[in-house]
């Protein structure tokens, strides 16, 4: 679905007078291989290059070096830009700044309208997309009356109506409250499971990546860790080095191991912790 090889992106930083101050290498030799139907998370602190990856995939930025293929299209080829954007839709961080129309259904229709989809098709696509994210009841509302989580779901519906193969979400929950975050994460898991849409979730919240197929950790424009959530969470020291957090249970298990208590590696959830602890220290 998405394949990158030695992908690099550089931009020139200028001072106030426009003089070149230096070259920033935001991406540095990134290799990616994301298969169809995967749910992949990219983790990293701000400035680690994770958002640049998203913009590369959407052909908003062009690679300085290396190649990137999305759904078989080369992102450096100008003529494929619209095909790429249709196959890999993008959801951004700020829920307000990506909704165009002042009526929910008209906003969802914006993408298909741009693609030149016939009117009757648009109507059925919009109905399907809103149904899928559970926002049908708000069809005729103004986005201004929705909560953050609901707005993000409308944004996802707007992408869904373009019938993409893959959805890239660039920190979609950073500006939401805990309930909004849950709504959005549940929605994208459902899309992945039931519609087989490939998901690339970019985030810095560790607890959101626990249920992913694969986690990629980025730092300094490079991929520094890669694997299943369990593999990644089994390396707590490394995670901290890359300025990331651990979920509380993972951290607790890790601390306890230091104390000599026998806890397994990479504990992901409360249930896992409880089972592991009770089997060792519970009443026999």
């Amino acid at each position: 679905m998405i394949k990158a090889s030695k992908l690099a992106y550089e931009y020139i930083r200028r001072d106030e007078e426009g003089n070149v101050e230096g070259v920033v290498r935001a991406l540095d030799g990134v290799d990616l291989d994301i298969k169809k139907g995967d749910f992949v998370a990219i983790l990293g602190h701000n400035g680690s290059g994770k958002s640049t990856v998203a913009k590369e995939i959407n052909a908003i930025l062009e690679p300085t070096e290396g190649v990137l293929f999305v759904n078989g299209f080369d992102t450096s080829k100008e003529e494929d830009v619209w095909n790429i954007r249709q196959s890999a839709g993008m959801v951004f961080q700020n829920p307000d700044n990506q909704l165009v129309a002042s009526v929910v259904e008209e906003d969802v229709a914006f993408g298909p309208e741009n693609l030149g989809v016939p009117t009757n098709d648009i109507i059925s696509r919009v109905a399907y997309a809103l149904e899928r994210v559970g926002m049908t009841a708000y069809r005729t509302s103004s986005p201004n009356h929705l909560s953050g989580g609901q707005k993000q779901r409308v944004a996802i519906a707007g992408i869904l109506a373009m019938k993409p193969k893959c959805i890239v979400l660039d920190e979609p929950t950073a500006m939401l409250d805990p309930n909004g975050r849950k709504e959005v994460i549940a929605t994208i898991h459902e899309l992945n499971r039931e519609e087989g849409i490939t998901i690339l979730l970019i985030t810095h919240y560790m607890d959101e990546v626990v249920d992913c197929d694969k986690v990629i950790v980025m730092d300094n424009g490079k991929v520094v860790m890669q694997g299943t959530p369990r593999e990644i969470f089994s390396r707590p020291e490394e995670i901290k080095q890359h300025k990331l957090d651990l979920p509380q249970v993972t951290e607790l298990a890790c601390e306890l191991r230091k104390d000599g208590i026998k806890m397994p590696d990479g504990v992901l959830s409360v249930d896992e912790f409880v089972e592991a602890f009770v089997s060792k220290y519970g009443k026999k």
């Binding site: 249970v249 607790l252 409360v270 409880v274 602890f277 519970g282």
Partner: peptide, 28 residues
């Protein structure tokens, strides 16, 4: 906090904790 649920679940399973914890340090 997650550790609150964790300690509550452990108490439920018969682990004799003095109460629920609210921070990782306390749970530890």
């Amino acid at each position: 906090p997650q550790v609150t649920y964790l300690t509550a679940a452990l108490i439920n399973r018969g682990i004799p904790l003095p109460g629920i914890a609210t921070t990782v340090e306390e749970a530890r």
